[in-house]
Design a protein around this nucleic acid. Structure first.
Lengths: 352, 352
DNA sequence: CTGAAAGCGCTAACAA
DNA sequence: TTGTTAGCGCTTTCAG
């Protein structure tokens, strides 16, 4: 395609343009104003007289003008883009929080860049660098634990970021999340209150995963505080039905049988539930199982899962708000938001 | 913070720089070479002599230099960013395809921008404009049906894009997906082959959703081709357990009862299943239910769901590959990839 | 193999 | 209210 374009030399020429994309200058020429006015008209319309605005608008529309991202980013030194790095979108654990995050951003005219870490600190570091090099103005990160290297990078580059799914008491990062340890404690206490004394735990791989770690700490704490209770076993595995099933089977291998298995995630709990059924165990008559997260899986199993509800949606929304406020330098913001989890009693926890 | 910077005027000065971010010029000064060499060293290292390369590398590292996104995007007129617009990440239907898409992109050094449409053509249009204005080099779009306005925009701006979750026979857009109509036909034929003759259907809102529409067309076709079979009712609703449950109840309202309910999505099927249980109906003894998608929900219900498996993962990966090839102008690419769906027989379809 | 310099498209300070 | 103009940081011919 060919386009009529205004050249620096002040003459009109027919030249090749990449897919005919009009520039500010084209619009300016057509509207008979300077490029500055166009820019103003786009970025602060009130600074431009109504009739001019009209003409410019027309020119923009007839040309189908869209501001060039690179030019704008270069001039403003800001991209209006925010990155989120989550372990994976593959399980519903983060997906709906991310959805809320994205919607809130989008409403504020900010676009979401997504990277994933697969629960691997190195991959997370790469993703951070990658998203930053793509111009992300700020970052959403899951959890608070990361290697020194990553921390240093974050502070060295003064990356605006908020932590989600956690609410660290130490550190200076803004956060929107919940107390994993307390929630772990709560669900374990709940199980104990149902009369269970021989417990077992299935949790995700804890290395580098502070949420999984904290939940277990909380669970252990609750068990320890009940003198006649004991933790018969603890299995770590990936977040898959299969691995959780294997972990569950392993747990039932010992001489003493647990009456309840507390799981660090619904995915693990469902894996355990499926395996229990496979082994001919009735839940919760023969064994109780609890989950964590309250993703949609939890309500469709039979019996449905007693679990801990994590306010994913409000967490995602709030995280976006905090990050946005951070980027806009809004003062007086509360930088640490602790949300509450609640225990959802359904059918997998028996009273004994 | 203050930084030592090389100024056009050729003298050294102490000046203020935004958060001390080093530029190419800083690196050049420190390494004692021109900015061009740095640029080369980064983008095509083989074009630079080994010793120089070393010095430059050092300079880059000691300064912690990261190329500025805007500058690069402006000069190259390319962002290395691809946008995906999906109805929602909230349900697992798209999340894992998106995850595969992202991973493949990431491996190629391309970053993913995410927008969502909520199944609304207008929102999709906005998202397209938004992602494009954020510099997306290409787009992943779900389904083939969109308003004239959107189509026109896409062609006018010559937006490289690939369609997923569908494989339209018409139109010029590259696509990676499966035949929704055929898959709908297949599952219905499968149900018929099990002896069912009185059928009902629950599907998603079909307006603007070609996947949902095509699936129903296929289902109807299969039913029509079996002379003694009849479609007793069809309900449309949103993809939620609640709405699907209501639709299911509505379907069982008439004088004649269906022996099988074919659902356009696992979410709908699970909603129906839950409702059936609530109504005291045994599945599949009293009524059969089938799903579509084979998301993880499908394997955890009791009984687990007979459904159609959609190859989400390979679809996401392949879509990324096609889009990447498109952007790199790689010739001789096959631009229409039809993947196969398979029926997964589990426990919700009875033989009668 | 390396350097000089001309932009890429847009914004914002300064003038008018 | 509008225009002029100097960059923003990087890539890329074109010379050397």
């Amino acid at each position: 395609m060919q386009a009529l374009t205004f050249i620096k030399s002040n003459k009109w020429e027919i030249i090749m343009r990449d897919s005919n994309r009009p520039s500010l200058e084209d619009v300016a020429a057509l509207a008979g104003v300077s490029t500055a006015s166009i820019s103003r008209c786009i970025n602060s319309p009130q600074k431009v007289a109504e009739p001019t605005r009209q003409r410019i608008q027309n020119a923009i529309e007839t040309l189908g003008y869209v501001p060039h991202f690179g030019g704008r980013a270069l001039a403003r030194n800001r991209t209006n883009t925010i990155g989120a790095i989550i372990p994976t979108m593959d399980n519903a654990m983060f997906a709906s929080g991310l959805q809320a995050f994205q919607e809130t951003l989008s409403a504020a005219g900010v676009t979401l860049l997504v990277g994933s870490s697969n629960y691997d600190p190195d991959q997370e570091f790469d993703a951070i660098r990658s998203l930053l090099s793509q111009g992300a103005d700020g970052l959403l990160l899951i959890g608070a634990a990361r290697p020194e290297k990553t921390q240093a990078f974050l502070t060295q580059h003064a990356v605006p970021h908020v932590l989600a799914w956690c609410c660290p008491k130490t550190g200076h990062s803004p956060s929107v999340g919940f107390d994993n340890q307390k929630s772990g404690h709560d669900i374990a206490a709940h199980v104990l209150a149902h009369g269970h004394r021989k417990l077992a735990v299935i949790c995700g791989l804890r290395e580098g995963n502070d949420r999984a770690t904290a939940r277990v700490v909380g669970i252990k704490q609750a068990i320890a505080s009940q003198s006649d209770a004991q933790l018969l076993g603890l299995e770590e595995c990936k977040y898959s039905f299969e691995e959780a099933g294997a972990a569950f089977a392993q747990l039932l291998t010992g001489p003493e049988k647990a009456s309840a298995v507390i799981c660090g995630s619904d995915v693990l709990a469902v894996g355990a539930l499926l395996q229990a059924r496979k082994m001919g165990l009735r839940v919760p008559e023969d064994i109780s199982i609890t989950g964590f997260d309250d993703i949609s899986l939890a309500q469709v199993t039979t019996p449905s899962l007693t679990t801990v509800r994590v306010p994913q949606h409000s967490m995602g929304r709030k995280a976006a708000e905090v990050l946005l406020a951070l980027l806009n330098q809004e003062p007086g913001q509360n930088l640490r938001h602790e949300l509450m989890t609640t225990i959802i009693d359904r059918g997998t926890l028996a009273r004994i």
